[in-house]
Amino acid sequence: MGSKSNRSRRYTEEFKRDEVALVRSSGKTVTEVARQLGVSAEGLRNWVKQDEIDRGQGAPGELTTAASRGAYGVPRIHAGLCRLGHCVNPAVGE
């Protein structure tokens, strides 16, 4: 069996930015850079794609990092407020 772990690893935003910049500047493929860094090629490919979206080069309708955080953060905040008894009906602002 291989030595690959099934556990997900978390990387900082700074690490991701640096690795995307390396892909862009090295002239190497995403797979080559991923092997060199010891990260998954699929994960690195996703970071590169998200960077393109954040730069305005994505397909119409794709969410930027900032927009996706906002889209997912609001329902979580709303649910937390409801658990505390401070539910707000977003449709009417009450």
Rank of each mutant, 00 (worst) to 15 (best):
G2H: 06
K4R: 06
N6E: 06
N6I: 04
R7P: 00
S8L: 11
S8C: 03
R10E: 10
R10C: 05
Y11I: 03
Y11K: 05
Y11S: 09
Y11W: 12
E13C: 00
K16Y: 00
K16N: 05
R17C: 04
D18H: 06
D18S: 11
E19C: 09
V20G: 08
A21V: 01
V23Y: 05
V23Q: 11
V23E: 09
S25K: 14
K28W: 04
K28Y: 06
K28L: 15
T29F: 09
T29V: 10
V30S: 03
E32R: 15
E32H: 12
V33N: 11
A34Q: 14
R35Y: 05
Q36V: 05
Q36E: 15
G38E: 14
S40H: 06
S40K: 07
A41P: 12
E42A: 15
E42I: 14
G43Q: 14
G43V: 12
G43P: 09
R45H: 13
W47E: 05
K49M: 07
Q50E: 10
Q50N: 09
D51Q: 11
D51C: 09
E52K: 14
I53Q: 04
D54Y: 04
P60Y: 06
G61P: 08
G61W: 05
T65R: 13
A66G: 00
A66E: 11
A67S: 09
S68L: 08
S68D: 02
R69I: 03
R69T: 01
G70F: 01
G70P: 00
A71R: 12
A71Y: 01
Y72F: 07
Y72T: 14
G73I: 01
I77N: 01
A79E: 13
A79P: 00
G80H: 01
C82I: 06
C82P: 00
C82L: 07
R83T: 04
R83I: 00
L84W: 00
G85A: 03
G85Y: 00
H86I: 03
H86K: 11
C87N: 02
V88N: 01
N89Q: 05
V92M: 04
G93H: 06
G93Y: 02
E94R: 09
